[in-house]
Design a protein around this nucleic acid. Structure first.
Lengths: 351, 351
DNA sequence: ATGAAAGCGCTAACAA
DNA sequence: TTGTTAGCGCTTTCAT
């Protein structure tokens, strides 16, 4: 039969208390205990005294519910998943921070995993999250959105894409075109005629990068600058490869171009790695713009214009899309942040 | 009786397949399926053909195990928890990244939550993790180590403290004294006689801060500088309060001190927020040191010496302590990083 | 106002 | 080499 495993945990030592322990100790039945502790005792018309007794005993025994058991029974876990590319990155970690805050607010427990932009890992993580019966998943910086949607569909899993959109599910992205256009414009102002602005970083195949490149192209040509393909360097996002790419560029052009559109913080980090090997003057005649914001990057020894994606808003919209799904892509406008501007985050009173 | 819920999922539509579905489809028993799919079929001497059939069918049905059920049965979840202060912080996110990598390597699933340095939230998170039956927990930047240890003991939960140690459980910290001493020394070299080096940030009550202050004091006095209490400003870690603190300091002293020991990146971020309101020259005659490293902070418009905590090593040691527990505190020496140095992270070929 | 009992999907002990 | 069965801790009818 079901109960009685010898350990009655009257003392606080051995194994974790269960509702059966509380039931025995309180003289009530397991189902009563469950209802009392689960907050639905009014629906079951359990007397307030009973509830109080049960609560007291539970407290004394240090009872806490086994959420795996509850999840199994209810076919949902109370977990919510988010896949990001990296933890160690201001943009993504800012998404995490907001994702977690919102989840907490809804009484859900966030599980955040990083894919390192590896499509295989990305899918493996997704499978794991599905196996834990998370209630839904956000995927930020998806490398293979279609595969993700396929897997989610098969498991009947709600999901929304953040940052990099997918065609098979609702997505929320920053307004990459608008943001990049604004950044490009500010980079080009006052540039001498004949200057050759460059774009560096990202993958031409991803939606965000291609939108940004489109904006960069359009603005550059509108402003009357020439633009050939070698001014667009999609070297990926890794600091290491960005570093090599900029070294090659400087070699080829005998220095930095007059304006440089940097497609992410990781790319900027790579550039800095190369700049450490150069004299300070090397960066003097270049205007820098970076798509993504970091407070320290705002105060570098050369000025950098930045685009700050609104992480909080991205996440809010993503939750909205989970609540009432639709196939649409929601765009959130980012902010242009001038050099030497420290944007104080919503969490800046904590630290 | 147990099985048969009408949905036989021969088509891919309805609900997720279980081992019972696979069993029925393959003509084997649930336990055989479990063993076959769970990789322990050699121990059960299941024929390779059976295994292959089962695998094939599982594949076709898009089967994936319900990890909550497995966890419930095995009284362990395969989840491992980590509590950090913030996601949105280079030091902590670097810990996360390494924590996750190691977990993955061991076939475990990391659940990383941020406490925002709120002791209440910290405990609530811990309870949640315990409720999910995580295999163990790391706590980084604990605000109330004793309460944590108490809760873990009650639930019989293995845990280790990272960064900020606790007395009731194994801990791994950076060598705060050594790191701070080295940083202080480099800050003091060449400083004019009569200079008044300051220390800013952190809480006097936390172990890390107090060790660092001790080192700062010792080195400062050894080097022959005077040191009064108002040179130590423990204003917490929040950017906002650091900003206010440095504004007050500059007001009081009519400018920045000749040397400034900054106790964390968040504090540095706060200072930058104030510096944006000042002329560039304001920082010219001050030597800056920061305990914690950020690649962008390495390239600010004024030079900053940094101490880079070895996140990878901290995590490795923490796992070691989980594997073979002991009551000791393991110290990991940090590195002193000169200004204009971009340390390439283990993840720098990804991005 | 409460109890009994079934069962979520899985694994492990015991049979065969 | 494989099948049967009990039960992990919880929620949820259904029956008092």
């Amino acid at each position: 039969m079901h109960r009685d495993r010898g350990n009655h945990r009257v003392d606080g030592t051995n194994r974790k208390a269960t509702i059966y322990d509380i039931a025995r100790l309180s003289g009530a039945s397991p189902s009563t205990v469950s209802a009392a502790l689960g907050g639905k005792w009014k629906a079951r018309r359990i007397s307030e005294t009973t509830v109080n007794t049960i609560r007291l005993i539970a407290e004394q025994q240090g009872y806490s519910p086994n959420l795996q058991a509850r999840g199994l029974r209810q076919a949902r876990s109370g977990l919510v998943g988010m896949i990001i590319a990296f933890h160690d990155n201001r943009f993504f970690s800012s998404l995490s921070q907001n994702f977690e805050a919102q989840a907490r607010q809804r009484g859900l427990v966030p599980v955040i995993a990083s894919s390192l932009r590896d499509p295989v890992e990305e899918l493996r993580i997704l499978e794991t999250l599905i196996s834990y019966a998370v209630d839904f998943v956000f995927i930020a910086g998806a490398t293979d959105p279609d595969a993700i949607t396929a897997a989610c569909k098969a498991a009947n899993m709600r999901h929304v894409f953040v940052d990099l959109p997918g065609s098979g599910a609702p997505s929320v992205t920053s307004d990459n075109y608008g943001g990049a256009a604004a950044l490009t414009r500010v980079l080009l102002t006052g540039l001498p005629h004949g200057a050759r602005p460059h774009f560096i970083g990202g993958c031409a195949s991803d939606q965000a990068t291609s939108r940004r490149i489109a904006a960069f192209r359009a603005e550059t040509q509108t402003a009357g600058f020439s633009l050939s393909d070698d001014q667009i360097i999609t070297c990926g996002y890794a600091p290491g490869s960005a570093r090599r790419a900029v070294a090659a560029l400087m070699d080829r052009c005998d220095g930095l171009p007059e304006a440089l559109f940097i497609n992410s913080l990781t790319v900027l980090e790579g550039l800095l790695g190369h700049f450490t090997t150069l004299p300070d003057a090397a960066t003097e005649h270049t205007r820098f713009g970076c798509y993504d914001y970091d407070p320290f990057a705002a105060f570098l020894r050369f000025p950098v214009h930045m685009v700050r994606q609104n992480a909080a808003e991205l996440i809010v919209k993503a939750y909205d899309l989970i609540d009432k799904p639709s196939r649409q892509v929601v765009e959130v406008p980012p902010d242009l942040i001038p050099p030497r501007t420290i944007f104080s985050s919503p969490f800046s009173e904590q630290g």
